[in-house]
Design a binder for these strands. Structure first.
Lengths: 404, 404
DNA sequence: GAGGTTTCTTTTGTCTCCTAAAATAAGACT
DNA sequence: AGTCTTATTTTAGGAGACAAAAGAAACCTC
């Protein structure tokens, strides 16, 4: 249930509103901000004054006009704050440093074997990466807003606002773990979320979903996942684990899945699932799925009959699976990401669109455009870095933050 | 994107907050309201004073206490306002009158043949039902907040706030239709939404989903539908057609569906789909599906082998389909409704729960409780009536409203 | 280049709203 | 009756938004 609000929340909300508009279209003048947000000029002056005093934004010039006072142009100041984003995949841990404009400044990676990464090691590695990255900043005394971490598993929001998020990531052997230690060690606020969700956030802020109120990012690779944006925000559900699309069932008589059920989207659209559909090839490419898919596409190009069938069915099944998302979430845009998703989108986007439309109900189907993700592999870490930025834009520095 | 807010929105939000709390737990005292909402006693006094002056709530007694001033108890005043809800199904049109406490006072029905109901007739019938119902109110000069209408189709929200909602309801032959005429004729605000959504609203306000922040109502009958509550509100998506679950595909090699695709949930779980799975019986019960299902259950009880298989598979498939909702929406509760859904839940609720859990991912699966709907056939009209109530609670009388 | 025009930005005064603290009300207890 | 306890209302103050007025900074014209 919504909570009580008071006059100070009004300022908080309007400050965030101005900052968000400024991030999406800059440079802008005070007048334009007023027109776009609906705020009165007086209020815009006041809010902008605050942001200028903080150093969050800066006046960067003028737009001359035919016979009137020129508009002062405003922009976010990239060097006003920095954020860190960390992505943990099943064999790599990458931390990157971004400025306030979300430009990546530097990055550090750490590779680990066997899908095993214990919490202590992870904490240590991330901490040293963060210190190194922050050390590369030219001047000292910079505002570092915090660290976001994307993990390959589910993250449960704390019951009480100031509790710790609980991580469940079987893939790397983490069960009911928290990163409170890392936060304490760094003296920085640490935010955790599922990797697919952080990637979706990245897409929503800097990619194809920029400015789209209702969008879904579909990630297809070895595994399959999705992230949902509704009303411009990440959809989380009761315990933050909404959007788990990989184990939605689309085939009553499908192959068994590692999740214990059968016919999951992942068994049909995931890389090894696709190769399974290619007679006799699954074993051949085990552990080298990207090569396998490449060779499937080569065979398709060569007109190999089996390959053509596999690819044709893949596209139809993808469209069918996407239609489920279209009908259930009624998005304006569906974005294909993940290495396999990108590969498919690059060559068969039109066919995927047709297939999706074919299987969707007409009304929501008409709304939904299918696109290819623009973000490369930087997505997950970038999205993780957005977590502290989001908090800052929403709450300013009032919430726990530290300088370094 | 969220819009600007000002101090007056603060009052609006807090007024709505108090009213919602009062609706959920009454009688309550000012002090308790303050504690539950987080508002200061002074503010509670002020807001409550306003509501008392309006007549929306009343002081109804005292709770004596051990040695202190007794708390004055507050309650919503049922007779402070009235609302109308209308449900249009494929062969019937029912309008009901409710008081502010959502007690049904009276109802009128109109049956029409052949799934054909033209807009002019509908307008006329509803208008006369409404006049009749309002006429039955003992005193005159009552506040009638408006009429809500639930239709068997999709409703597109207007692009501009003051535009008209567009209705697409193929089932009764309505295409791009609006009820602006009805509103003008009655001099009352008219709100329209999809029938499954209004029923979900009813469940959220008065049924199993009361007070639940994340819930899904699943309606299984001849057709199949669903409504989703997230963060305590109805989930609508980009054009208000989210939650269309009936044509989610769960069987790649399933039977073709009237929607043009194949293996839709409706072809598996809908009444005629279920009977199709019962060898040789589909034709027998065509047009008399409820009887057919009853006889299937009788055969199941008698130990008929085919029937046992059909029912066992039905439950497994239902669990599998529900698991998709669990994984994608991460709800706290799933509620089974619709005549067939109720029938199944009444006899096999435990098995359905097991099946759902079996096919869901562990984390979201643990959260989701499966229950049977408590609302009978009154749901759709009741939910429709909630539409104007919701608006009133949120905006007070500031939005277009009329007295009669 | 002085005055006028136009357009953006800031200032001023007013209004709304929440809240802490103080005051008041309405019992029970002794 | 006096005291204690708890609930509600008043009071005084602060945060905010905004309309209207004032000020600022161009350009244009003669």
């Amino acid at each position: 249930m919504p909570s009580k609000i008071s006059t100070q929340d009004v300022r908080r909300a309007n400050r965030a509103l101005v900052l968000r508009h400024l991030r999406l279209n800059h440079p802008t003048s005070r007048i334009d901000l007023g027109a776009m947000t609906g705020l009165s000029p007086a209020t815009v002056t006041s809010v902008v004054g605050e942001l200028l005093a903080e150093g969050t934004i800066a006046e960067t010039g003028f737009r001359s006009s035919a016979g009137g006072r020129p508009r002062t142009l405003l922009e976010p100041r990239p060097e006003s704050a920095y954020v860190l984003g960390c992505d943990i995949s099943e064999h790599e841990l990458t931390t990157a440093l971004f400025d306030f404009a979300l430009q990546q400044l530097d990055t550090r990676s750490y590779t680990f074997p066997e899908r095993q990464l214990d919490l202590a090691t992870a904490t240590e590695v991330i901490a040293s990466q963060v210190r190194e990255l922050v050390g590369t900043l030219s001047s000292s005394g910079n505002r570092v807003l915090g660290l976001g971490v994307g993990v390959p598993g589910m993250v449960e929001e704390p019951a009480v606002p100031e509790g710790d998020s609980l991580i469940h990531a079987e893939l790397i052997g983490w069960r009911d773990v928290s990163l409170a230690g890392l936060s304490a060690e760094l003296g920085l606020p640490v935010f955790v979320d599922n990797g697919a969700k952080t990637t979706t956030l990245a897409e929503a802020w800097c990619g194809e979903a920029r400015g789209v109120e209702h969008a879904i990012l579909v990630l297809i690779g070895d595994g399959v996942g999705a992230g949902v944006i509704t009303n411009g925000r990440l959809y989380r559900g009761a315990t933050s684990s909404a959007g788990e699309w990989g184990h939605t069932k689309i085939d009553l008589s499908g192959r068994p899945c590692r999740c214990g059920s059968r016919g999951c989207v992942e068994t049909v659209l995931g890389a090894s699932g696709v190769l399974h559909a290619w007679p006799g090839q699954a074993e051949v490419w085990k552990g080298r799925e990207p090569e396998g898919v490449a060779s499937l596409l080569a065979a398709f190009d060569a007109g190999d009959e089996a390959a053509v069938t596999v690819v044709t069915e893949l596209i139809d099944h993808l469209g069918l699976a996407l239609s489920g998302l279209v009908n259930l979430y009624n998005p304006q845009k569906i974005i294909l990401g993940g290495w396999l998703g990108q590969m498919i989108a690059l060559r068969f986007l039109g066919d995927v669109r047709d297939a999706t439309l074919r299987h969707s109900l007409p009304q929501p189907g008409r709304q939904a455009v299918v696109e290819r993700s623009l973000l490369g592999s930087r997505g997950p870490a970038l999205g993780a870095a957005i977590l502290p930025i989001e908090r800052y834009i929403e709450f300013g520095l009032s919430h726990p933050l530290t300088s370094s």
